[in-house]
Amino acid sequence: MLLELRGVSQRFGGLQAVADLSMTVAPGSIHGLIGPNGAGKSTVFNLITGVIPLTAGEILFKRERISGLRSAEICRRGIARTFQATALFREYTVLQNVLVGAHRLAAPGLGPALLWSASYRERERRARERGHALLKSLGLGAVASQVAGQLPNRDQKALALAMALATGAELVILDEPLAGLTDQEKAETTAVLRRLREQSLTVLLVEHDMKAVMGVCDTVTVLDHGVRIAEGTPREIQTNAAVIEAYLGAEEPGA
């Protein structure tokens, strides 16, 4: 297993956001995390990426414990993420955003920057090339020198994904990658996700669009009130009684 959550809990004061959650993400899969509003999906993402600390349990990535590490260190080990409200460096150009994502693979630190050595310039040049190639592959080649804050929603979403990929991550965690997109744009994004899976990247995503989730995911985990109520293939989830129960009055999975 690439990612493993063991009995993970998170409590904000009296509110149990996530309770004793265990789940595994298989390498090379697209794994969906769904559930009604307030089910704790985003909290799970924040716990995995070290944005908030867990109250109990542990998280393993490639059999190594990552819970308790800094977010930067978790990213260094191979997990990158996007945020629900698309988070970018709005004043920077699209290419600069991706270059920040390539932080670890470039030449960070004070010494190389001050000395301006040949190897520093070479690494930066390569980072730039890789950045351009990555942008092109995600359909952002034409807007590389535009300011990120002025891009349309679709391009901002794609850029957030590009930044996560630029870190060289093996697992990317996407918080609502399809929110606010048109049907056409959703189809394009899911095609990109399938292509990434072919390149043996693992994707864990939170998404409200059930049709898209069921169409693209290999495995789906369902959360309700911070508790895992089901896990399985999309077909199994769609017929699961507990899942239908949880969604009653909200929206029906697969609808």
Binding site: A80, F89, R90, E91, Q96, V100, H103, P108, A113, M163
Partner: peptide, 21 residues
């Protein structure tokens, strides 16, 4: 790159951190 990263931190430190900074 130091300046690039510094500016990224100023604009959105959490995003920079989760990108490995």
């Amino acid at each position: 790159r130091f300046g690039l990263t510094a500016g990224a931190i100023r604009q959105a430190d959490l995003v920079a951190e989760t990108l490995g900074v």
